[in-house]
Design a protein around this nucleic acid. Structure first.
Length: 212
DNA sequence: TGAAGGATTTGT
DNA sequence: CAAATCCTTCAC
């Protein structure tokens, strides 16, 4: 049994629930900016990071893995909101998505970059010249948080290998006061569906995986 | 059954 | 700009 952390009321209110994620990915993706992805390991170790860059994928979207048909790889995308859809890309990197919208509507948000609260001790700081870019990019993010295919289909819930927490009040106030702003633009690395502006990031954040 | 290519990253 | 590297998809 993995170590359990007692859930107090402060904590419970912060957990992102499935209903909140059961909306179109294009609505959820910008809302996830500023939310915190928490990774919990079997020994209880927690690594937290603020989401600073996302991309939405959905039905009628030629860039979506499930655009053509349901398959063994993409079937998690058809599941209920709140599952983790993880896939292997270019034979060497993993990417993590949050499944959104209603069941049977293939839809997910790719988490492209985190601003980490603390750098995990297993990260080679010699190699990572800039600590704040340790989780900049979907592949590096999964490498840093030790996320691979074994976690595909996991529910994002308190006590699980990962869960989501809502924005802090301070973060939300900074949005309200326009101290923090978002940029919406086109997605990265696609051959189809390039024209859809379904990528969002925190303007000027140094952990955003790519500018331009 | 085989070939092409990918929601990436790194180093030349 | 090309390599690394493996799984999925699609064509034959």
């Amino acid at each position: 049994m993995p170590a359990q952390i007692p859930m107090n009321s402060t904590h419970a209110n912060r957990i992102v629930d499935h209903l909140w994620l059961a909306r179109p990915s294009t609505e959820v993706a910008p809302d996830l900016l500023g939310c915190i992805l928490v990774r919990q390991f079997p020994d209880g170790t927690l690594i937290k990071g603020t989401i600073v860059e996302t991309e939405a994928y959905g039905p009628e979207d030629p860039a979506c893995h499930a655009y053509r048909r349901r398959s063994k790889r993409n079937e998690i995308m058809f599941g209920p909101a709140g599952l983790a859809y993880i896939y292997l890309i270019y034979g060497m990197y993993h990417c993590i998505n949050i499944v959104t919208d209603q069941e049977n509507i293939p839809s997910a948000v790719l988490i492209r970059a985190l601003q980490l609260e603390t750098i995990p001790p297993w990260v080679d700081l010699q190699k990572n010249r800039k600590p704040h870019r340790t989780a900049a990019g979907p592949g590096k993010l999964c490498k840093t948080l030790l996320i691979d295919l074994s976690l595909n289909g996991t529910k994002l819930d308190y006590g699980q290998p990962f869960w989501l927490e809502h924005r802090t009040n301070e973060f939300q106030q900074n949005i309200n006061n326009k101290i923090i702003t978002f940029t919406q633009t086109t997605r990265i690395g696609l051959s189809q569906g390039k024209e859809f502006p379904w990528r969002w990031y925190i303007t000027g954040d140094p952990a955003v995986s790519q500018f331009g």
